[in-house]
Design a protein around this nucleic acid. Structure first.
Length: 283
DNA sequence: GGACAGGTGCGGT
DNA sequence: ACCGCACCTGTC
């Protein structure tokens, strides 16, 4: 895969990075769409602008090494695509459809707080809540507001989160921010992904699904499958073999192994796209 | 009106 | 350990 860095620009072959599919498959919430294939993206106190012109995607940014890592540009996804695509026809279609998706390497703390907000919620509301929290508690930067520090989040009146629209999750954000301020960023280096999942579940507002999202998007652990309503549908439609809902994640990891996370992303993308086009054709 | 949205915490068995 | 249910809030 071809990546070149010229000054403040990272230039990537679009066949390996579809910016819309990557940003809009639910792994990240701090982005704004400028036009069809142009997005502003925010992470911590950093900003990038990505635009896709045909076969070339340009990432203009303040810190090329940060965003190079963020977009996981060292990884070759064609290997996972080939292995997964050979497992069955549905997966082959999902891989082809989503081959421009990359798993972003996001900041662990930002991911923890963001996915507590994601629980039983929808993407547009999650984005709006996080945006309001950044405006309220984040440092102003040249391009917008930074994600708040854990100190700012822990010390804030939980009312701030309620006003941002977090609902009953407000107390979870506050409690977990306070815990993280005491504990520091959880260090999972010596743990298996399932051990790390159990550890993360001790924080308020984190259950098995949110913990898997944090591991996949905030800790780059590929051997997890966050099972949401979409993946439940995928399981029941294409992989059904008698598992209870809470056992679906470990079953899918047993099939997909180290590629489980990206497999989940391909199928999530595929199922949503399919369902959306279904709805459109019905209406 | 009720279901749904990338679920979790809680109380009762 | 394992259910079943309530839950902020906006949208369809």
């Amino acid at each position: 895969m071809k990546v070149t860095i010229e000054g403040n620009n990272i230039i990537v072959d679009s066949s390996y990075l579809d910016i819309a599919d990557t940003l809009e498959c639910g792994q990240v919430f701090r982005y704004t769409k400028v036009s069809d294939k142009c997005y502003h993206i925010y992470s911590l106190d950093k900003h990038a602008y990505a635009s896709q012109q045909g076969s070339v995607t340009t990432i203009s940014c303040d810190d090329t090494s940060y965003w190079y890592n963020y977009f996981d540009l060292d990884s070759d996804y064609s290997i996972a695509c080939d292995i997964l695509g050979a497992t069955n026809n549905t997966m082959a279609c999902a891989c082809t459809s989503g081959k421009g998706i990359r798993i972003l390497r996001q900041d662990a703390t930002e991911t923890i707080i963001s996915f507590i907000i994601s629980a039983n919620n929808n993407i547009s509301r999650i984005r709006s809540i996080i945006d309001k929290i950044c405006i309220k508690l984040g440092k102003a930067t040249q391009y917008g507001y930074a994600f708040p520090t854990i100190e700012a989040l822990a010390n804030a009146d939980p009312q701030i989160y309620t006003e941002a629209g977090a609902g009953y999750r407000a107390s979870y954000i506050s409690a977990t921010a306070k815990s993280l301020l005491v504990d520091g960023v959880p260090d999972i280096d010596s743990m298996s992904s399932s051990q790390a999942n159990k550890m993360l579940c001790q924080y308020m507002g984190i259950g098995p699904k949110v913990a898997d999202c944090i591991l996949l998007f905030g800790y780059s652990r590929g051997d997890v499958v966050p099972v949401d309503t979409w993946i439940k549908k995928v399981y029941h439609n294409y992989y059904e073999c008698g598992h209870r809902d809470r056992d679906i994640a470990s079953y899918l990891v047993s099939i997909w192994g180290e590629h489980a996370g990206i497999a989940q992303q391909y199928l999530f993308h595929y199922e949503r796209k399919y369902r959306q086009s279904n709805n459109n054709s019905v209406q």
